[in-house]
Simulated scan of single mutants.
Amino acid sequence: MTYGISERRACQATGFGRSSQRYRKRADPQVALRMRLKELAAARVRYGYRRLHILLRREGWEVNHKRTYRIYRDEGLSIRPKLPKRKRAWRYRQGRPAIGGPNEVWAMDFMSDRLFDGRPFRILTVVDCHTREALSLTPRANFRAFQVTEALDALVKLRGRPKSLRVDNGPEFAGAHARPMGLSERG
């Protein structure tokens, strides 16, 4: 009686059924089953609810698989994702050295778009990593390795050779022809 109105009148005013208002859950909370399921899930991280259900049945628990799943979900248990195997090179990789000034490190990659009639085109972008200046934007319908080489050679004649060049491992950069300047850094 917090508001000074009876339960019957409050339920009638809100349209809420009195039987729903007075309902008390009668189901057994099954605390022991929940605790055992959590223990099994903690011990066997890669097991889902189906395998845990089999383990519970082997231990003598008379439990339906649907109940096992409901408790498994209610407790927030789930299969933990596998951690990826790290490559050996990743372990020994060191951080990138600091960039001291302009024209030391360039980064290059491709951007793609489509023309008004649906034909695709790509733009080779070369950026100075220190100044964030776009050194070259070369558009073409498609790029071959020798065309990337030509664009870089023209840029080297204009700006000078950088100490290193950062690229991804795309097909345009992976060929033997695509290493015109003997630059050291990749990736």
Score class of each variant (00 low, 15 high):
L37K: 00
L135V: 08
I5Q: 09
Y72A: 03
R179Y: 09
V148A: 02
D153Y: 04
Y23M: 03
K66G: 08
I71K: 00
R88W: 12
F116V: 13
N64W: 01
R186M: 10
L137K: 07
Y92Q: 14
D109H: 02
L137D: 02
A107Y: 00
Y47Q: 11
N142H: 15
G182N: 07
N103T: 09
G170H: 02
L137H: 01
G175R: 03
P180K: 04
R159E: 07
S164M: 10
I71W: 01
G60P: 00
R166V: 15
R70Q: 12
L135S: 04
L135W: 01
Y23G: 05
R93F: 08
Y3I: 13
F16N: 01
A151R: 00
R51L: 07
R51E: 07
P29N: 05
R73L: 09
G76K: 05
Y72V: 05
E172R: 01
I123H: 04
S184R: 14
Y49E: 05
F110R: 01
Y92L: 14
D168T: 03
A176L: 14
V156L: 10
L158E: 15
P180L: 10
L135Y: 04
L52A: 07
C11P: 09
R24G: 04
R186V: 12
V148P: 04
L155E: 02
P162V: 04
P139M: 04
R9H: 12
E150Q: 15
C11L: 09
A134S: 13
L183K: 03
M181H: 15
S19P: 01
R140I: 02
A107F: 03
I123Q: 03
A27G: 11
R88D: 13
A134E: 05
P120N: 11
R144T: 15
R24M: 03
R179I: 07
R122L: 06
V156Q: 11
K66E: 12
M35H: 14
L83A: 15
L115M: 12
D109L: 00
R46N: 11
K82I: 00
P102D: 01
C11D: 06
L165K: 00
T125R: 03
H53T: 12
V167T: 15
H53N: 10
H177K: 14
K85P: 00
A42M: 04
P97N: 08
G182Y: 04
N103V: 07
A134Q: 09
R73D: 11
F121A: 02
R159H: 09
S20D: 01
D153K: 12
N169K: 05
G15D: 10
S184T: 15
L83W: 05
R86I: 11
A41W: 07
